[in-house]
C-alpha cells in the first residue's frame, strides 16, 4: 500500500463535517469511516484528528454527546449541528467548483 496521500490543505474540516453528517460517530469511528469510504486513500493522522474535531466543536459546527458504544463503553459522539449543515453545504459547493476547475486544467492535452 502506498503512503496515503496527504490531505489537501484545509479539506480535513470539510471531510470531518461530511462524515459526521451521515450519522453521529466517535473520533475513532470517524477516522476509520474516512479511511474506508476513500478506499484507504485518505487517512487522517491520529495527531491532527483531535485538535480538528475540537476546533469544529468550539466553532459550533458540530456538537458532542457522551453515549454508550456497541461494546458498552462510554464514548464521545460527534454530530452535525444545524449551522454545521449550512456550512457543509456551502463548503461542498465550493469544493465542487474547485475540483471541477482543477480537473479541467489537468485534462488539457499536451501538444
Amino acid at each position: 500500500m502506498s503512503k496515503p496521500s496527504d490531505l489537501v490543505q484545509g479539506t480535513l474540516d470539510l471531510l470531518l463535517l461530511k462524515v459526521v453528517a451521515l450519522e453521529p460517530l466517535h473520533a475513532w469511528a470517524i477516522a476509520q469511516r474516512l479511511k474506508q469510504i476513500s478506499g484507504d486513500v485518505l487517512q487522517v493522522s491520529d495527531g491532527s484528528l483531535y485538535p480538528a474535531l475540537h476546533k469544529l466543536e468550539q466553532a459550533g459546527w458540530i456538537s458532542a454527546e457522551w453515549k454508550q458504544t456497541e461494546s458498552g463503553r462510554r464514548a464521545k459522539y460527534y454530530a452535525l449541528t444545524a449551522p454545521g449543515r449550512l456550512e457543509l453545504n456551502q463548503e461542498s459547493l465550493k469544493w465542487d467548483r474547485l475540483s471541477e476547475a482543477i480537473t479541467k486544467v489537468m485534462r488539457i492535452e499536451e501538444a
Binding site: 468550539q58 466553532a59 459550533g60 459546527w61 456538537s63 449541528t81 449551522p83 449550512l86 456550512e87
Partner: peptide
C-alpha cells in the same frame, strides 16, 4: 450564522 453558531459554542 455567526450568532446561531454562538448558541452552540
Amino acid at each position: 450564522l455567526r450568532l446561531w453558531r454562538l448558541l452552540y459554542a
